[in-house]
Write a protein that binds this DNA or RNA. Structure first.
Lengths: 76, 76
DNA sequence: ATGTAGACTTAAGTCGACC
DNA sequence: AGGTCGACTTAAGTCTACA
């Protein structure tokens, strides 16, 4: 039943895209970003694939680790 | 180890301010917004006081209920 | 009409192992 | 180097009641 139960969280998708782009632009691997942000590599993998509904605190930690504005990770 | 207890979650504070402003601008009570968003009044109270670390899905539901862009609730 | 408290269920977030 | 699978702990989010 892949009738997509939830409206496909826009912000979650944006974060997935922007995070991966920002990380790669910074020349970091998921493991390196995991170290810097204090989050786990497995978790970052999920986020970059849009599988996780992260909290605002996590968005901030990622933004800080990448030296970008938090909103930049959520923008269109 | 850091003298700051908690990094003072910027996004959380922004959301608190913007949510209350947007809700009042729409002429809604917390209870009415609770109905529209499917969230609870007690929870909205906490969010508007910056006490809760909400997820992206909740931000979207609030934005939808208020007919504003999700990023508008997080902006400075 | 809002804020707070407490008990509760579910998912966020951690971690090690592996492909 | 990234993805996936589980098992686990903690906090997000629900709900009732009351000042």
């Amino acid at each position: 039943m892949s009738t997509s139960p939830s409206p496909a969280s826009v912000l979650r998708e944006q974060l997935a895209r922007n995070l991966r782009a920002a990380r790669q632009h910074a020349g970091l691997t998921q493991e390196q970003l995991a170290e810097r942000s204090g989050l786990h590599q497995t978790y970052l993998s999920d986020i970059e694939r849009g599988k996780r509904n992260v909290t605002l605190d996590v968005v901030e930690r990622l933004a800080a680790a990448l030296s970008v504005a938090p909103l930049a990770l959520l923008a269109d």
